[in-house]
Each structure stands twice: as structure tokens, then as C-alpha cells.
Write a protein that binds this DNA or RNA. Structure first.
Lengths: 206, 206
DNA sequence: AGGGTAATGTACCTGCCGGTAAATTAGGTT
DNA sequence: AACCTAATTTACCGGCAGGTACATTACCCT
């Protein structure tokens, strides 16, 4: 028999399961609306639980955010490191390998990308610092990639490399956003699509 | 002699001038933090004025936002239309012409781009609808461009075209963001840099 | 059966932010 | 000199979201 709504007491959902539900909902909410606009009440409502439970399980809003951020950041970093080690650094297919790794790492929690790249984090806060650490680590990977690319094509301006790093990040963000709007697409299908697009645009600018 | 702080009365700044100051500050604040996180008090403080004056001059927060959004949107649309008319549609240099136009239109209010592409607008609000209108108009321009590009290189998948549209938008956003972080760069310098980068990456993917 | 503890809800406090009404001052006009 | 109007402030209200204290229920082990 189902527990009647609105009454206190356990609903039979064990803590680890609830925590996972909450993390999933929070990741989506934070990713969609950004930290500042996301509301704890909305996250709780999505899980079918009250605000209080979030605090009891994860602490303050910042702590909940960190609990969403850390796994996403770790998984992304690992995936990207593995992908960049796979192909030799100067190969033109490295970017596509990295993309495929990102899509795979993000599958099931696609909004996590925007948790990492949330611009609405309060400055001088733990979430902002942690996210910045992850971003720096990722950027460093991307920097070696873009630097290799530019060196191979002979453009020595360091500002160019920095701008290319930004562009690459923005490109990935846009692709992930498109992916979120097309939930039926598998990670591999996305990677294949990107390969097609890269090839097509590359041909146009040769 | 300067008017002592904290006292009421005119500071000798005529209304049109103040309105411009407020619009500039608001555009920057909205663009940096997003509509939801931007605070009227912060905007007022930046101008050296109180919150009340914003209301008196522009009405509610949404109205102030619209007052920031409309000029940016109009100017961007005009610039892009002109740029796309300039080069014949199928030319590979059209994207660069458009980019140059965007940078020029955005000079002096670079954060305006993110006013237009603010994800934190309250759904079902006038700002959201207006921004969506501008974005749709811009996207339609971009869509013809990307469709041309893909047709020229033989990729008939309509989803590919849609994804490429997203990617292009994300690319522009990233470049504008980089530009904001490098205030000394002129619009033309940015456009030249983009030309270099396009050429380099195009060569890598030929 | 009964107690301990995990799981959950109700009710409340608090601070920030958008918004408004009324007061205050300075400059141009008669 | 008096006054009207534009420019600006001070002081306040109300709502919403984060956060906390405490009450309540259900499962588990003995």
C-alpha cells in the first residue's frame, strides 16, 4: 500500500537512493537555470520531497552544488585525459576523440556540463573556486591541444591560442546544449555528427 | 563645488545623460550576471544613484531590461543583415564578414550579446519573448548561412544544419566572451584574429 | 512487543530584493 | 524674490528563498 501523501515519516526510500535522486534533480536544475536562479524548493519538489531533506542530506545550497559538481568534474577530466592520451597529440582527430569522450562522460547527466560552466556562481565562494579549479584543469588540456594545432599551422601569437581555447570551449558548450534539446541522440551519434560537421566546415575554409 | 553625497536634489546631470549612463551600466550588469542574478541596487550603485531613480526613469526591472535589449538587438540585426547582403551568400568569407559586423555593432557595449542570449530570463515574460524574437530573427539569418555551407559540401541531414547553427552561435558567444576579457582589442583586430583562426583550423581538418 | 534510529514533514525565522510613497533640494522662469 | 518643476533621496512594504528547530512516522533489531 502506498504511503499517503503529506504525512511525515519514511516513504521506504533508502538514503543512498534518495541521495542519487536528489543529485540528479539538482544537477539538472542547476545546469538548466544556473546556481543563482535554481531554487531548493524546485529541486525538492521534483524529487517529491521537502526542502528540509536536502539540507539534512547535503547541507546548505553551496554544499549541494558541490555534491553535483564534483562527480561531473572528475568524470569529465578523466574522460578527457584518457581521450587525449589515446591519440598522439598532434593528430587532427584528437578533438573528435575528446568530443566523443565528453559526450560519453556526460550521458545521463548532460546538464552537468553547465554546472561546471555556470556563470552565476557567487564570487569568492567555495563553489566558484572548485568550478574554477576544474575549468582550469580542463583548459590546460585544451590549451595543449589548441597550441599543438596552431603550431602545426604556423600561428605563433599566444593570444590566438588563448582565443582558440575559448572558441573550442564555446563550441563544446553549444553542442552539448543542442544535445540536451535532442534527448534521443546517443553519445556516439553526437560524435559522428560532429565529425561530419568538422569535415564540412573544414572543407569550406581550406 | 561638488554636491555633497547623501543629499537629495539634482546633481546637475540632465535626464538623457543619466538615462544613457543607466542603460550602459544595466547592459553590463545584465550581460555579466544574467537577468535573474543582476540586482537593481548594484546597477544603481555603479551609476552613483539610487534604485528609485531606475524605477522612475525606466519602470520595473523587466522594462529596464527591455530598454537594454532593444537597441542591442536592433543594431545587431541590422549589422548582420548588411553583412550577409554584402558578400554573395555562398562565399566562404561570409561568416567572417558577419563576425566583423557583430564585433563592430557590439563595440562599446560588448556585454549586450549576453543580454540577448540570457538563459536566466523568467519564462513567459515580456523580456523572454522579445529576446526570443531577436534570436529567432538572427537564427534565421544564421540558418541560411549554415544551410548554404552544408549544401555546398553535401550533407543533407537537416539535424546537421540545426546543430551547426547552434555551434556557430556558441562559437560567436565564446569569441565575444574572450573579447570582453581583452578590452584593448579593437573590433577589427578581433575580426582579423578570427580569420587567422578559421584558416588554421580549416587547414587542420581539410 | 518495544525501543532506537532513519526518514520525513510542519512551522517558523531572516535577509535580500523588487517596488512604492513621500519628502527634499536645486535650477530655470516669471 | 517667489515658484514651479525636474532630479534625487529616505524610508518603508511585501514576497520569496535559504536555512533551522522540532515534531512525527515507519522500519529494524532484539
Amino acid at each position: 500500500m502506498t504511503t499517503p501523501q503529506g504525512r511525515a515519516g519514511t516513504k521506504g526510500v533508502p538514503r543512498p537512493r534518495r541521495e542519487q535522486q536528489i543529485l540528479a534533480a539538482a544537477t539538472e536544475e542547476f545546469g538548466r537555470h544556473g546556481y543563482a536562479s535554481a531554487s531548493l524548493a524546485a529541486i525538492a519538489a521534483r524529487v517529491g520531497v521537502t526542502k528540509t531533506l536536502l539540507h539534512q542530506y547535503f547541507g546548505a545550497k553551496q554544499d549541494l552544488f558541490l555534491a553535483c559538481l564534483n562527480p561531473v568534474g572528475d568524470q569529465l577530466l578523466d574522460a578527457m585525459r584518457a581521450a587525449m592520451a589515446e591519440g598522439d597529440a598532434t593528430a587532427a582527430r584528437t578533438p573528435l576523440l575528446v568530443l566523443r569522450a565528453i559526450f560519453s562522460a556526460l550521458d545521463g547527466r548532460r546538464e552537468g556540463w553547465f554546472v561546471l560552466y555556470d556563470a552565476s556562481l557567487p564570487a569568492d565562494s567555495e563553489p566558484a573556486r572548485t568550478a574554477a579549479r576544474y575549468r582550469t584543469a580542463i583548459d590546460q588540456l585544451a590549451a595543449t591541444g589548441t597550441a599543438d594545432l596552431l603550431r602545426a599551422t604556423g600561428s605563433p601569437d599566444p593570444l590566438d591560442a588563448d582565443a582558440l581555447k575559448y572558441a573550442w570551449r564555446g563550441l563544446v558548450s553549444a553542442l552539448v546544449r543542442w544535445w540536451i534539446n535532442h534527448p534521443d541522440q546517443s553519445p556516439d551519434a553526437m560524435a559522428d555528427r560532429c565529425a561530419r560537421l568538422f569535415a564540412a566546415t573544414g572543407r569550406a575554409f581550406d
